[in-house]
């Protein structure tokens, strides 16, 4: 006897229901009922179950349980995965090359080349000696406590991922800014990317690619970190002064001229703010990326957590914070330079 028996009998589906006679596993609730001998008691309105798949299943064995739904989904994925991987695997392969290349390059170049090179980049981007000194000291500190290699691995991964985020994010943002339809379609996807727990899509990806591919964590980082650069590019271009756009039209600019000579330059402060956010978010993904075998500081954090080596965890966490501060300061400083150049 189950709550919704009447539904199926009134619909005349008893026969169909009875077709499926396979046992469904006894649930704990059933067992407890059996123990207490309360089965004969009628259900009170307080215990009315929501008309869910499982509740219907109890009344009608042929009605699928909700676990059949998830099982079906899994089966569906397994069925199409071969075709999917034929498409996705080569498409994403360059990501593995970039990541492996960057990791190889940064680890096989001596520190006395890498550190000055990074400092030079910092100077070119920010034109601030103060920042160069700060970054130099931070890197020296990390190197001194023998975290140089891990920090550089993390840095290399972030460089590659942030670069690809900008490479794809800016055009997507531009496309969004030019079409309201595109914006309406993209925003829910972006929301989903930011909230979906990475493992939910990472595990299926392992079925598609080999787990040893570095693109796995690359994808995890990029999918999460690309969102702000898309959003802010879109916003930045939409916020460009309508009057200036009108002037560009009135003087006969083509759409391309408008985009490159007006919209992108004027949206640059917002785009750069997006880049800054993107870099910060890639850093936030470092630990999760290490769960899918990304090298770097995240591995140490995991090790610290798993072995209760609190010290290792703390120092590695601190290393991530130092990298975050460096990257944040540097991108903010270059952002400030752009802002100063085009204050309206």
């Amino acid at each position: 006897m189950a709550t919704y028996d009447f539904l199926f009998s009134s619909l005349g589906l008893e026969k169909w229901c009875a077709e499926d006679t396979s046992d469904t596993p006894l649930s704990m609730v059933d067992l407890l009922k059996k123990t207490k001998g309360t089965e004969a008691q009628p259900d009170s309105i307080w215990e009315l179950p929501f008309p869910s798949m499982d509740a219907f299943h109890e009344s009608c064995a042929s009605f699928p349980q909700s676990r059949d739904l998830t099982k079906g989904l899994e089966q569906g994925f397994l069925d199409i995965k071969d075709n999917l991987s034929v498409v996705l695997d080569p498409l994403t392969q360059p990501l593995s090359w970039f990541l492996d290349g960057a990791l190889y390059a940064i680890l096989n170049t001596p520190w006395w080349i890498v550190i000055p090179l990074l400092l030079a980049v910092v100077f070119v981007v920010t034109k601030s000696w103060k920042l160069v000194v700060f970054v130099g000291l931070s890197l020296a500190l990390l190197a001194f406590i023998d975290y140089y290699e891990y920090a550089m691995q993390t840095l290399a991964i972030i460089f590659v991922c942030a670069f690809l985020c900008v490479l794809f994010g800016v055009p997507i943002g531009i496309a969004m800014s030019r079409s309201d339809m595109m914006q309406r379609l993209t925003i829910p996807v972006l929301d989903m990317l930011q909230t979906l727990p990475p493992f939910v899509y990472l595990i299926p990806l392992i079925f598609l690619f080999s787990v040893t591919e570095s693109k796995l964590y690359g994808i995890a980082i990029i999918l999460y970190a690309i969102v702000p650069v898309i959003r802010l590019t879109n916003l930045g271009i939409r916020l460009v002064d309508k009057d200036v756009i009108e002037a560009a039209d009135a003087f006969g600019m083509t759409s391309r001229q408008k985009l490159y000579k007006v919209q992108i330059p004027l949206a640059l402060p917002n785009i750069m703010a997006g880049v800054n956010q993107t870099i910060m978010m890639s850093l936030a993904m470092v630990v999760i990326a290490s769960l899918v075998s990304a090298p770097g500081l995240g591995v140490l954090v995991l090790q610290g957590i798993r072995n209760l080596e609190l010290g290792v965890g703390l120092v590695a966490g601190l290393g991530i914070v130092i990298l975050a501060v460096i990257l944040d300061r540097v991108t903010k400083a270059s952002l400030a330079r752009i802002n100063a150049a085009q204050k309206q």
Partner: peptide
């Protein structure tokens, strides 16, 4: 728009990231 008409705007609508010279030459730049 490029050759037979030009326009002056209430809020000036200059390109903030370009110099005065480049702004003045905008029609020619275009």
């Amino acid at each position: 728009r490029r050759e037979r008409m030009s326009m002056v705007f209430q809020k000036f609508a200059l390109l903030p990231h370009k110099t005065v010279l480049e702004n003045a030459g905008m029609a020619l730049l275009v």
